[in-house]
């Protein structure tokens, strides 16, 4: 029997993002020189939400872009299901502090690929990482700077973030018998 459990609901996601927005401002002592880059598909929508929250707090609308890591993945020759290309839209990043945003941090390989992609567009002053969920099981030395929720999971479980923009509902679900792991 597959077991699906909602670990974050609509309200909890909003609270977590609000906290992350505050942390970003605090850590960077304001919003100067900041750029937010989401990793499509859901990381990009989270980036847009973070911009809105930061604007509510600081009154500044930060540039937001999308960094698609697909062409930089290290598993293309291994996966049978070929990922389709997504949005790539990178504002000037030279000398900027870039906050990369993704929904779930797992092995760290996507973040590695996204950083490589970003480096082809310029030389940021710094890259920081914000994720809604950190589920552990890193395979690379990568650590998030801002975490919505730490979620200890087993490797076999699937963690899915659903957002109203793409899925019609806001929730984070843990599936104990997933079809495909994330």
């Amino acid at each position: 029997m597959p077991m699906k459990k909602v670990v974050l609901d609509d309200k909890a996601i909003e609270r977590a993002l609000a906290r992350v927005a505050h942390e970003i401002i605090e850590r960077n002592k304001g919003t100067e020189n900041l750029v937010i880059l989401g990793i499509p598909t859901r990381g990009y929508h989270l980036a847009l939400r973070l911009r809105k929250k930061i604007e509510e707090i600081e009154g500044v609308s930060l540039p937001v872009g999308a960094v698609d890591a697909t062409l930089y993945r290290d598993d293309l020759g291994i996966k049978k299901d070929q990922p389709s290309l997504k949005r790539m839209e990178i504002p000037p990043v030279d000398g900027k502090k870039v906050v990369m945003v993704d929904d779930v941090l797992f092995t760290g390989r996507t973040i590695r690929a996204a950083m490589n992609a970003l480096m082809d567009f310029g030389r940021p002053l710094a890259i920081q990482l914000a994720v809604l969920v950190d589920r552990g099981h890193r395979e690379l030395p990568i650590k998030a700077d801002y975490i919505g929720k730490n979620l200890p999971t087993s490797r076999k479980e699937g963690v899915k973030v659903h957002l109203s923009e793409t899925d019609g509902v806001n929730e984070v679900v843990v599936d104990s018998a997933p079809q495909e792991g994330k």
């Binding site: 062409l71 930089y72 293309l76 992609a117 082809d120 567009f121």
Partner: peptide, 11 residues
Amino acid sequence: VSEREIKKVPT
């Protein structure tokens, strides 16, 4: 990709 400064991806 062809419009970037670095017109190359490692795919």
